[in-house]
Amino acid sequence: MANDTNTVDLDKLTGSFKVIEEANNSLNSVSLSNIVLDLDNDLSKISFEHGNCFSNYKDDLDVLTNEIDKLKSEVNELNAALEKTIKSFADPESKSFIGTNLLNNVTQIPVTGQTTSEVQESNPINTIPIGLGIAASGIAGSVGAVAVDSMFHNNDNDIIPDYEEPGVEIVEKKINDEPELDDSIAREPTFDDVTPYHASRDKEVIDKFYNDDN
């Protein structure tokens, strides 16, 4: 059962962001695709000199290159999503809109801003509970989360082809065939899961107040 409480620990999340950012930089600085390309060139020459002895190796390298591209894209998207989430929570007023092309159903969500008083200062690890009382921040959190989560929804049909054995057709496997991923993705919250703040929510309290008064 999903927990309705949305929280973000900025210290932890910032630490994780730095790790992901470093991983992203590492993937971009050492080009795995170039290593594969070098391998392709070396093998191409050897294969030519020896009667094209390596069969279908280019297809295998294409699969490998494709996987590397997907990896770089996923790390880059996670990096960007974490950055957006941190920015939206840490300094919501610095951005008038959050949520861009990373979001599925949400394109632009106005952020109403989160005041200092809304942060529970008693929490020693800077955890920010986002409940019904601060629905606007909840929206921001959800949008940040959806930004992170959107990668899964975008790649629901992502295919990782298995390695092709000689004489055997490529067997394709859906990443999301793995139960743990499918189940988690299915439960992932969307923007619609967060109940927006509305005055009518307080109607009962207000009515009670007036009734008690009477």
Binding site: N3, N6, M151, L181
Partner: peptide
């Protein structure tokens, strides 16, 4: 603990997916 939205952590799911992707690349 870092980011929880309705009890889920999409960043953790994304990270685990990346790890699986890398494992697959190494196998390939």
């Amino acid at each position: 603990e870092s980011l929880s939205i309705n009890g889920e952590s999409p960043s953790n799911i994304a990270a685990n997916k990346i790890l699986k992707r890398i494992e697959n690349i190494k196998v390939l």
